[in-house]
Write a protein that binds this DNA or RNA. Structure first.
Lengths: 171, 171
DNA sequence: ATTTAAACCCATTGTTTTAGTCGGTAATTA
DNA sequence: TAATTACCGACTAAAACAATGGGTTTAAAT
């Protein structure tokens, strides 16, 4: 399973759709200006999402994209596997050129790991992600209202994910 | 957090070291021929792993690499974050150009997700991975010994990870 | 001492993926 | 009919991945 900004673009775009699921179709133009990425690149991503049956597009004025299913029925894994190629040709594709047991061991270990990550991402749906975030933001808003400054919260929200400090090593 | 074959090469190579941790240093030449990847590319990866303090190299004949810490003290996240660039320049790096609440929302959502994945990978150590696999293989071996064919197990071990079927959609 | 096996270093190249650009066509609404 | 949108395909640019090739140290073995 590959995990890059490409899948991230797709997930954030799908969240945009999920939020407006029962109000209006969202145009790629909207998403492009929201996220400041190119319209044509979004089109490429949505071509994949459409082929995977995750979104439906309607043309013409007032048109745009909607989720093909309810947000709860779409997992993050669905989205990410939809947009990346994933042909995954490995050197050790058959038994024949696998000369020692050790190599097979590490292959299998990685396969297990990869499966775990997939399962993790497959157990989170767009719907759950929104609910989770909504309650978190509500809590923060309530806290901010009772105190004085709004900026401390805003600062938290704008910064992007950095790899946190390791639990084991402290580096 | 980026997750590609690059990190995977690093993890499998580190497993090689972990397995031989208390016997002998492992040469990059060994790993290169085991995994069938270029020696020089491995050198590039190990330059990073060394700078991160995960491995120690000793030169000369009989030399090679050892883990700098015990396998239990090295997480998969340590390895992966060590080999990939992770400059992660985002468009919305500061508060100033973040024009609407929605965009910040999705950013934060992704950051949360990214953190979860990191934590997941940070809770698995090389040591645990080996133990887990050892017991799994032992169980399979016992089963194979009591029956007749060896091939069914071998077939499972050589094939690489494919994205499994989605829990939600069946696709 | 000399040879040899290894890490270590760096610059370059090729390949793939990511991201963006351009110029359209088709459908739909106003 | 005009405007707005999805949809399509080919092309380009930039970045990351992966490999190549030329070294130099270091240290053990001969």
């Amino acid at each position: 399973m590959r995990l890059t900004t490409k899948g991230r673009y797709a997930v954030t775009a799908m969240l945009d759709l999920a939020i407006n699921q029962h109000t209006r179709p969202v145009t790629l133009h909207d998403i492009a200006s929201n996220q400041e990425i190119s319209l044509s690149y979004l089109e490429q991503l949505f071509a994949r999402l459409r082929k995977s049956g995750l979104v439906k597009g309607t043309r013409g004025p007032g048109g745009g994209y909607r989720l093909a299913r309810e947000p709860v029925e779409i997992s993050i894994a669905d989205i990410i596997t939809s947009v990346d190629e994933r042909i995954d040709i490995t050197r050790c594709a058959g038994r024949e050129d696998c000369h020692d047991g050790e190599r097979c061991l590490t292959h299998e270990l990685w396969a297990d790991l990869s499966d775990k990550i997939f399962q993790f991402l497959d157990e989170i749906s767009l719907g759950e992600l929104i609910d989770r975030e909504r309650s978190r933001v509500d809590a923060l808003t309530a806290k901010a209202d009772s105190s004085n400054d709004y900026d401390s919260r805003a600062a938290r929200v704008v910064f992007d994910s950095k790899p946190p400090v390791s639990r084991r090593t402290g580096t």
